[in-house]
Design a protein around this nucleic acid. Structure first.
Length: 197
DNA sequence: TGAATGATGCGCT
DNA sequence: GCGCATCATTCAT
């Protein structure tokens, strides 16, 4: 097994963390089973000055995790039926996080299929809501220490030449910021076709 | 291949 | 009450 990412990995500028998360493996040891996936698409949300960031209104009950220590999960409920999984970055007191948007199944595909019976394998993790659904992640998995043993990330290489940067998907504010990163060539990448490359 | 739409609950003004 | 870091389905080209 490769090395678990330490706190110092997350305690860096969010754009650096986002880019470096590509190719890494996320592992969830849940009651349902052990699930693993290779991250292929992420988005950065950085500070109160980023209009699309949940911290834009300042500290609230909902976004307080983002103000906490780096290397913790931030999971929220959206559109009445989906969840989104984020990784908190940067020093305590500065609210920022990276949204996991898409991944490729590595381990526990049977469980993922049970959770997402209508999805095809190639695209079962291709979207932030689909990733959480297939992994069974909910707000109960928010504020989990990602340097622990339940949800954590492992080091893995990603070809630098495959990294593509675009605008973020599915937002109406801060649309011009180039804060989305994905691995070219992965069929799991989500998003509209004109932002695929 | 792409645009439009409904589902559905919660946080915040 | 409005809008939302979504997705699957429907309908049009």
């Amino acid at each position: 097994m490769s090395r678990k990412l330490p706190r110092s990995f997350y305690n860096r500028p969010t754009l650096d963390v986002a880019r470096d998360l590509l190719g890494k493996t996320i592992i969830c040891d849940l009651p349902q089973g052990r699930l693993g996936a290779r991250i292929v698409e992420v988005e950065a949300y950085i500070g109160e000055d980023d209009p699309a960031c949940h911290a834009a209104p300042g500290p609230t009950a909902r976004n307080q995790v983002m103000y906490g220590r780096p290397g913790f999960s931030y999971v929220y409920f959206i559109y009445g039926m989906y969840h989104c999984f984020n990784i908190v970055t940067e020093r305590r007191g500065f609210p920022a996080a990276v949204l996991l948007r898409a991944a490729e199944p590595v381990e526990g595909l049977e469980v993922m299929r049970q959770n997402s019976p209508r999805s095809r394998t190639a695209t079962i993790l291709s979207g932030p809501g689909k990733f959480c659904r297939a992994f069974g992640l909910t707000v109960e998995h928010s504020e989990v220490d990602l340097t622990g043993d339940v949800i954590y990330l492992c080091d893995a290489p990603a070809p630098e030449s495959d990294i593509v940067i675009t605008r973020r998907v599915g937002i109406n504010k801060g649309v011009d910021l180039p804060f989305r990163f994905f691995l070219d060539g992965s069929s799991a990448v989500s998003g509209l076709s004109h932002l695929r490359k």
